[in-house]
Deep mutational scan, measured.
Amino acid sequence: MSIQHFRVALIPFFAAFCLPVFAHPETLVKVKDAEDQLGARVGYIELDLNSGKILESFRPEERFPMMSTFKVLLCGAVLSRVDAGQEQLGRRIHYSQNDLVEYSPVTEKHLTDGMTVRELCSAAITMSDNTAANLLLTTIGGPKELTAFLHNMGDHVTRLDRWEPELNEAIPNDERDTTMPAAMATTLRKLLTGELLTLASRQQLIDWMEADKVAGPLLRSALPAGWFIADKSGAGERGSRGIIAALGPDGKPSRIVVIYTTGSQATMDERNRQIAEIGASLIKHW
């Protein structure tokens, strides 16, 4: 067993022997301040990774656009098919120029040779490549099948209805392509620590998230040296922004954090800054 596999296998073990965790309302004060600064709703939840206990939450059962955070769930569904012998990570998928959609920095470079399922998941999570996500959605049967996968996990809230990039439209009061912070946090925890996926697939999923290259201005910008984070960000229309993450000190994750916002007129930089400040408060009061 590799060191990384050992780390993920012992996530519940280490967490069980940690000192009790206590909620700190100071972080919620910052979440509410972010709402004021952005002029928009902000949803927040913080779960203990081992027990699933909610440590703090704000608007945990209000719907927010998922945006690209759905790509972690998508690759979880792909990995479940791999575990069941219905898919192979090494299978190569070929596609054409007509398949390319807006923001496809990886797939646009491989029109000639195609990409493997493993490479597509890596591109979808680490670079948020939209064509990679659409190609992977095709392998599982489309958005409705991802929703069905989530329902089978016990998540009857999260739903995907459309493809990239239309799913980022974020129309107010439109339930399409949305989740709730509580539902997303619980589902992410199941994917990373539950028995739904094999140990190898859980490790692969967290490795992809740990290698995320496009979430630097968010929670990662607030992390002290030595902290662990595996995350996936999302951005959408109407001032929408979000991030889902597993993080913790001492090089291992111990909490799940989900943050979503929508309806702001603020710039992307300002949305990023507010999420980073929430992260800084979380870490300060850990």
Rank of each mutant, 00 (worst) to 15 (best):
I3R: 09
F6V: 11
R7C: 08
A9L: 09
L10E: 04
P12G: 12
A15Q: 08
A16P: 09
L19R: 08
V21H: 05
F22M: 10
A23S: 07
P25I: 09
T27V: 14
L28R: 08
K32E: 09
D33L: 12
D33K: 15
V42S: 03
L55H: 08
S57N: 09
R59N: 09
P60I: 12
E61G: 13
E62V: 08
F64A: 01
F64L: 02
M66G: 06
M66E: 02
K71H: 00
V72Q: 02
A77L: 11
V82D: 05
G85F: 06
Q86S: 12
E87I: 11
G90M: 13
G90F: 10
R91H: 10
Q97V: 15
N98K: 14
D99N: 10
L100Q: 05
V101F: 07
Y103W: 15
S104P: 02
T107P: 01
E108L: 09
E108Q: 11
L111R: 08
T116K: 06
T116E: 10
R118S: 15
E119V: 02
C121V: 03
C121Q: 02
A123T: 05
A123N: 05
A124H: 00
A124F: 00
M127T: 12
T131F: 05
A133L: 00
A133E: 00
N134D: 06
I140M: 07
G141L: 04
E145V: 12
T147I: 08
H151G: 12
N152L: 10
N152T: 14
D155N: 06
H156F: 11
W163N: 11
W163G: 09
E169P: 05
A170S: 12
N173W: 15
N173E: 14
D174S: 07
E175D: 14
E175N: 13
R176T: 06
T179N: 00
M180Y: 14
P181F: 00
A182V: 15
A182Q: 13
K190V: 12
L191C: 07
G194F: 09
A200I: 10
S201G: 09
S201V: 03
M209F: 03
E210Y: 10
A211Y: 09
A211I: 07
A211K: 13
K213I: 11
V214S: 07
V214L: 07
V214C: 06
L219F: 09
S221F: 09
L223I: 12
F228I: 08
I229G: 02
A230H: 01
A230I: 07
S233A: 08
S233D: 00
G236E: 02
E237P: 14
I244L: 09
A246W: 06
A246T: 12
P249Y: 05
P249R: 09
D250M: 12
G251E: 11
I256M: 07
V257F: 04
A266D: 09
T267V: 10
D269I: 13
E270H: 10
I275Q: 01
E277P: 02
E277Y: 08
